[in-house]
Simulated scan of single mutants.
Amino acid sequence: MSKSSTSAQLSSLKKSVAPFEKNDRKASIKQMINTLGPLFLLWAAAYFSLSVSYWLTLLFAVPAAGFVIRTFIIFHDCCHGSFFRNRKANDILGTITGVLTLVPYRQWKRSHSIHHAGSSNLDKRGIGDIWIMTVDEYIAAKPLQRLWYRIYRNPLVMFGAGPIAVFLIQYRFNVKSARRQERMNTYLTNVLIAALYAGMIWAVGWQAFLLVQLPIVFVSGFLGIWLFYVQHQFEDTFFEHEEEWSYVMAAVEGSSYYKLPKLLQWITGNIGFHHVHHLAPKVPNYNLELAHNATPPLQKATTITIGTSLKALRFRLWDEENKGFVSFKEIKDRLRQPLPPVEGLKIQKTGLQAE
């Protein structure tokens, strides 16, 4: 696809979804109420159920985790400046919801904008995404690099240890390139989290707090990483190098339409319409489905369901030759063959981040 063709297509699609980029203050406030209200009530229910049965507590913790995801979607919209028209309002609410979801607002806002600018671009991996190696990179890698990558891509590590590593540890620190405003926001987020948790421990005791909060953090973290994972790693997805990459292709073909049951779609703030979001990040979450339904070209995006998305669990490497994901098992024979010299091959490495 030529650059001029891509530009024209982008302009046409942008024009189609432009009406849906207008946020509605009443809709935003309503979403705050129907998200934060149930989250607090479910947390309280989980706490009071401790005197009855811990199984009942866990039963309350699961939907509470769902509302943490919904809170994160509000946070996510604030990062894009799409939840409110006023930038300061987005910054304030983004920081508050960042405390509730354990994510520093300005740090994530920066890394996420980089993710959007280079999503599906093989030459721009490394910030705000999940580590993907190509087959050639993996074959060329040293044994220890291969081992680390295999550990990283193991579902038990990615979705088991990942939530703890990312939300409780990684996001507590600034990256070296962070500027002062971003650093201060991370410090502020950490202080507010500590104050909130200290207050809750004072109110209910540390044991009760941990029994309720830890499963909520783990389940919401697991679900968040899973959503981010399947939004870009699915059959027939799109990855290309800079010279062949285009913003439109990355949005429409490199981002999935995760068709969820209506209740789960609501809980996850319509983020399943990820192709729409990547095309037009300014569309608030409550308008994503409307934009999808009103724009026929967007309805051609790859649709995945809960059932079909499970196939992604075996995806390990991107095969540039066949334009698709493969498992480690599928490249065993190629590993035994001598590696031909490849000029300019660089092994891309990145940390695990939730979108």
Rank of each mutant, 00 (worst) to 15 (best):
I73P: 00
S2Y: 09
A89D: 12
L147V: 11
I130F: 07
I151E: 08
K332H: 10
Y286N: 06
V157K: 04
E320R: 14
I96E: 03
D123E: 14
A89N: 04
V52Y: 13
A178H: 09
R150I: 10
A251Y: 02
Y247Q: 13
E235R: 07
M184I: 12
L56P: 01
A45W: 04
C79S: 14
S53M: 10
S113L: 15
Y229S: 08
W131R: 09
A250T: 08
G205P: 00
A198M: 11
Y171W: 12
V342W: 08
S327E: 10
L196N: 00
K282C: 01
A294Q: 07
K346I: 14
E253F: 06
K26A: 15
M200Y: 09
P38L: 06
E253C: 11
F40V: 15
N174C: 11
H278S: 04
L59I: 05
S49R: 03
N285W: 03
L192Q: 00
Q213I: 14
K142R: 12
D123H: 12
S111Y: 10
R183N: 03
Y187T: 14
K300D: 07
M1F: 12
S16Y: 02
F238H: 05
I33F: 06
A61M: 00
F238A: 08
Y229K: 06
N185M: 01
S220Q: 02
P155Y: 10
R146S: 05
I164L: 12
P215M: 09
V191S: 01
N293S: 11
K30F: 15
